[in-house]
Design a protein around this nucleic acid. Structure first.
Length: 490
RNA sequence: CGGGAUGUAGCGUAGCCCGGUAUCGCGCCACAUUUGGGAUGUGGAGGCCGCAGGUUCGAAUCCUGCCAUCCCGACCA
């Protein structure tokens, strides 16, 4: 492992790339745009999955699994949905390879599929094709299903965790008897996401809805949570869609209500992906490496022994065993790094790079004095404290760290939301002080597009519970009733 | 798909203009000394110089073609 990573002030995107690689989260794969998520990175994702999965179950959802491949014909059914995804679909055309006689493996042209298969970019179509068979009556509703899956979107430009051709996610797909119920579902899941991202990733989010042009293809309304990264760019961290009856109509999914009247079913879908890893990394980390929130850190506490002789190590180990037992009883994960192949200084740097929230260093002097050295990753501070009551102290500190990194990110976010009423000022701020800009907009897609073309900033969302105020569109001067959040985004 | 750049050991690189069988650092292996912030010494292993042609007695180096990757745009969770 080479020393250090580039400073994030020097080159933010290179900093991010180096961090992902050197912290052992992921690496590039032989396939362009695809990544290998390494065990350390994957264990963070697993923690996210575990927590989210429970939240889904607690709100009445069940998991299921739908196929990776979708018949091409399914895609022709919902027009705007097709438009949204057609340009980035991987297509399976053959089902067999053969040897060409010269030692090369080639596609067997005779094994051409009758109907081509699309590798799912999202599963609405195959799921609604399936729901048709599950729903006849209002008694069959609601259907509250989630699936954990991989999806493929053939992106032109990819970035580790933020935009890869294949990514992991969960997609919830629900079916309801009424519009109101479906909207309530979409709103509920947005709340679940916001709760999860703020309380587990320690990343503050703005809850809002997308403008029509930023909506999910096929949705009537898209709700989102938007986070602000340390470089001032916004990141969409999760979306929840009210799909209306669009997919029910496309796949002819009707039900009989209590009066025996036929109506199309109302739908939602909602998802978060491994992109959350990107949000996590970019929200808290620094030039020394990752900073992980304790609640998602694969290792919450690492113990580094400092010793010269075997008996000193044995002595330390003895103490660490009892500390481990105490911490495990509290549900805290601890690693005792007794490798003799690396020196303590190396280990310190390594665990800082990997974002372990707390480090305990114990040497022979400590053993004599009944103390340890306790170092916090978030503040980079160290203190010497007694072994007595250490487990309880660690427990408290982990909670404090979780809160602290959220507070820090929250303060940064608040400091980087600026109200702007002048277009020149708007453009200047985007370059000089990136972040969210709260500005008036006349509500037209044309204005939105022009601002995007001229500044690269998009409307990230119209915040929920947005204060209403009279104002003039920043570009056209036309009347507006509320401010929307603009930013350059990932 | 346009514009730019780069492919040499696991990683980062020198050599290329001016052809003669590859440099240095990190990492790796062995041994010893070390261990409170990324250890030191000694010895060692590791290369189809992106791929395919061509020129030449001889190509990492010159020529042609291809491939791949990265950056910047258009598209996107």
């Amino acid at each position: 492992m080479s020393k250090g990573i580039i400073s994030k002030d020097e080159d933010y995107s290179q900093w991010f790339n180096e961090l992902v690689i050197k912290a052992d989260l992921a690496e590039y794969s032989p396939v362009r745009g695809c990544m290998i998520i390494k065990p350390y990175g994957y264990s963070i994702w697993e923690k996210m999955q575990t927590v989210l999965d429970k939240m889904f179950k607690d709100t009445g959802h069940s998991n299921a699994y739908f196929p990776l491949f979708i018949p091409k014909s399914f895609f022709s059914k919902e027009a705007s949905h097709v438009d949204g995804f057609a340009k980035e679909c991987a297509v399976v055309t053959h089902y067999r390879l053969k040897n060409d006689g010269e030692g090369n493996i080639i596609v067997d042209e005779e094994a051409k599929l009758e109907e081509e298969l699309i590798v799912r970019p999202t599963s609405e179509t195959i799921i609604w094709n399936t729901y048709k068979g599950w729903i006849q009556s209002y008694r069959d509703l609601p259907i509250l299903v989630n699936q954990w899956a991989n999806v493929v979107r053939w992106e032109m430009r990819t970035r580790l965790f933020l935009r890869t051709s294949e990514f992991l996610w969960q997609e919830g797909h629900t079916a309801h008897a009424t519009s109101e119920e479906a909207i309530a579902e979409a709103e509920q899941m947005l709340e679940v996401y916001a709760d999860f991202v703020e309380n587990w990733l320690a990343v503050p989010v703005v809850k809002g809805r997308k403008t029509p042009s930023e909506r999910f293809a096929g949705a009537l309304d898209t709700y989102c949570i938007e986070a602000l990264m340390q470089d001032g760019k916004a990141l969409q961290a999760g979306t929840s869609h009210f799909l209306g009856q669009n997919f029910a109509k496309a796949f002819d999914v009707k039900f009989s209500d209590k009066e025996n009247k036929q109506d199309y079913v109302w739908a939602t879908s909602w998802g978060v992906s491994t992109r959350l890893m990107g949000a996590l990394i970019m929200s808290h980390s620094d030039d020394a490496g990752l900073v992980l929130p304790p609640k998602l850190a694969p290792i919450q506490v690492v113990v580094v022994p400092i010793y010269k002789h075997q008996e000193e190590l044995d002595n330390i180990r003895n103490y660490v065993n009892s500390l481990s037992a105490e911490l495990k009883a509290k549900g805290i994960s601890i690693k005792f790094d007794d490798r003799d192949t690396q020196r303590p200084g190396f280990k310190f740097a390594e665990y800082e790079l990997k974002g372990v929230p707390l480090r305990v260093a114990i040497g022979s002097r400590d053993m004599q004095n009944g103390t340890v050295e306790l170092a916090r990753r978030d503040t980079k501070t160290k203190e010497t404290t007694t072994q007595e009551g250490l487990a309880a102290k660690i427990e408290g500190l982990l909670e404090e760290i979780q809160q602290n990194i959220f507070d820090k990110a929250f303060k940064f976010r608040e400091e980087n939301i600026t109200k702007v009423d002048d277009y020149e000022e708007f453009k200047r701020l985007l370059d000089e002080k990136p972040g969210f800009i709260a500005a008036h907009w006349d509500g037209t897609p044309e204005t939105e597009q022009r601002i995007k073309d001229e500044t690269k900033a998009t409307i990230r969302c119209i915040p929920l519970n947005n204060p209403q105020e009279e104002g003039k569109c920043i570009l056209t001067g036309r009347p507006s009733k509320e401010r929307v959040l603009f930013a350059r985004a990932y």
